[in-house]
Amino acid sequence: MNKMMNAKTSNMNRIYTSKIWNYFILLVLLFYIGCNTSEEQTVATFSNLVMQDEFDVDGTLNSSLWTYDIGTGMNGWGNNELQYYTDRPENVTVQNGVLIITARQEDFNGAAYTSARIKTEDLFEQTYGRFEARIRVPFGQGMWPAFWLLGNNCNEPGFTWPQCGEIDIMEFRGQEPTIIHGSVHGPEYSAGNAITKSYQLPNDRFDTGFHVFGIEWAPDYVNYYVDDVLYNQITREDVTGEWVLDHPFYIIINLAVGGSFVGSPNSDTVFPQNMLVDYVRVYKK
């Protein structure tokens, strides 16, 4: 019996060996194919770094690069958002090399929540380029973090939103922890009709670790990527109206609470919630 089993075992070992060899060849093949795929999918080509904030200095933000939106805007920043944006350290601070935007549940100037929204308006604006940030998003019903660009002429007559253009590099619904959305807004394709594609992270979620969210914006297209995956390209042909992405835009990073895109928080939503940003980098061709 023992001998038989040994014989069987050794036989099995031989089969295994040959199988393992096959797997090895397969792996090698896959590796090569893998390389080819990644060569085909060039995620980003712009490499001339023109702006970066690594958030390496604890405390307040670098005021030569960032300013704040304060308050509740018009109609909850146009989206029925529920938070009051402040520039208090309770809502926005840099600690341990990371920008922390914190949404809190607290009564503040008539709002039930506070949070922060920072922007580079008048401080850093650029036409075209690669805009990238490494972010860990919060979670829970009603959380709406975003990393996006807005045309710098929205306040000029004839260019009010959406004519001034908007590029959403990353938007996230706290109740859908595995999915982010990338969009462009312009005339005839704004708000619910924006040109959007969603990306679902396989076997993982966005609120448990940092991920790189980026776009590469050229005269004829916007490429969207998450980490090393290029998941969408929006071209002039894709938009259902005038292409308005041809003038300087500035960066906005915010954490909204509630609003039409996500709905209100519910009793399961945990507060406070943090949006962490490790860096923001902008490249030119």
Partner: peptide, 10 residues
């Protein structure tokens, strides 16, 4: 299974 999406333990 290892789903990878079970998170935020409380």
């Amino acid at each position: 299974e290892r789903l990878g999406t079970i998170a935020q333990p409380r």
